[in-house]
Design a protein around this nucleic acid. Structure first.
Lengths: 219, 219
DNA sequence: TTATTTTTTTAGGTTTACCTAAAATAAAAT
DNA sequence: ATTTTATTTTAGGTAAACCTAAAAAAATAA
């Protein structure tokens, strides 16, 4: 159950590509991994021997259940580290990817579960992509922070990243719950606060700090 | 200025060994790195070609200034990560070494400086070893937490790991400063609090939390 | 000082993950 | 249905970091 960083990158990349292409070609992998097709073929044979994917020559590749399981754990690590870098170390969300590419290959399971707990079990990374939990389960809908929602675009609250009692108390008071439909009426650049409209209610204002922690998705 | 994890381990290990042995032998390195002497010789030739150490066949090895500089940066990373694991992720101080062995090879300079800031610039790792600063400077005296000081052993306060104003206010009030000579009179296992004796003063008591953050060294 | 033992190096392999160039297969075009 | 083009694979090579076995140098003992 321990794979080289290179193998982990192959599994992760195949996972991402097969969500768009269903069957993943050698050339697509070569482009994504910045390697030559010959190298891809070679590695696919090794990964097949390790029973991580379904591959037959000239016919492309797909992960099997075991391969998916491994890929999802790497994605979990990547996204948790990204979240850590942005929320705790004050990195910009656009500068964390490369560092997370390295951190995702640290092997300790205990480390990643403790990191998860330290971060309060976040469900979305700084780019809005879902973070799989310890068991590999995650929301398939792409969530974004309320802060990044376009003005006048209807959305539905799908979660909060910080589950402190203070935060939950505030949300209850403002009548915001999981499933609440709302839209942003106005953004105030001065303090990044937002004016929100919830159906049948008077408009309310939330601070940047609060908006940052509310996750929404389309419709 | 970028070296493989393996090369970094060689430099780090030579650094540690030459603090005891002055000249480091091939066999000593082989034992420390769990590799065969032949592999050591091979790598030493490479590191010499990269101008990181002074090496002549059959005559042992020493780091030059550049090699030391690199080694210290790796040690800095190792100890900062250990501190992070213990203080933020609640690892036991005895179970962090292996994980830090992996984390120390993450390359981002920005990451390590931001981590340092996030941790409030600690000067000692959980084992009492000094943490080099951004420029590679560090105290050579081995500091330990007051919590780990033996009863009736005279010691001198050399630093505090948490520099919050609350902590500093408490220390000022109890008359504890950098340089204060003191000894532990009694340890209360019930709450891990300590009774301290400072010369010409009445004995005082400090909690586990406070003692943990006070660093002392011998004499 | 010469012989023996220990340490270190050299010479030649192995594995991993890349590469290039040529061959095989599949897909597209005439 | 061939031919042409594109994709994929095979064959053989390289660099890094390890290995074993044998040779060379240094240290120790007789």
């Amino acid at each position: 159950m321990k794979y080289s960083a290179s193998k982990e990158n192959y599994l992760k990349t195949i996972y991402h590509l097969q969500n768009e292409q269903n069957i993943v070609t050698t050339n697509a992998l070569a482009a994504a991994l910045q390697a030559k097709p010959a190298s891809i073929t070679e590695m696919l044979k090794k990964l097949k021997a390790e029973k991580l994917l379904i591959y037959e020559r000239y016919k492309g590749v797909r992960l099997n259940n075991e391969g998916k399981k491994v890929a999802i754990q790497i994605i979990r690590k990547h996204r948790l580290w990204e979240y850590f870098l942005v929320r705790k170390l004050q990195f910009g969300w656009n500068e964390v990817h490369e560092v997370a590419e390295e951190l995702e290959h640290i092997t300790s399971k205990k480390l990643i579960d403790k990191l998860d707990a330290f971060l309060d079990f976040p469900v979305t990374d700084p780019h809005g992509d879902p973070i799989p939990d310890r068991f590999g389960k995650f929301n398939n809908v792409r969530q974004i922070s309320l802060l990044d929602l376009a003005v006048n675009k209807p959305a539905k609250v799908s979660g909060v990243t910080s589950q402190t009692t203070d935060m939950l108390e505030l949300l209850t008071h403002k009548n915001i719950h999981i499933g609440t439909r709302l839209e942003v009426r106005k953004k105030f650049p001065f303090d990044n606060s937002l004016e929100l409209k919830i159906k049948n209610q008077v408009p309310i204002t939330v601070s940047e700090q609060v908006a940052k922690n509310i996750l929404v998705h389309d419709e």
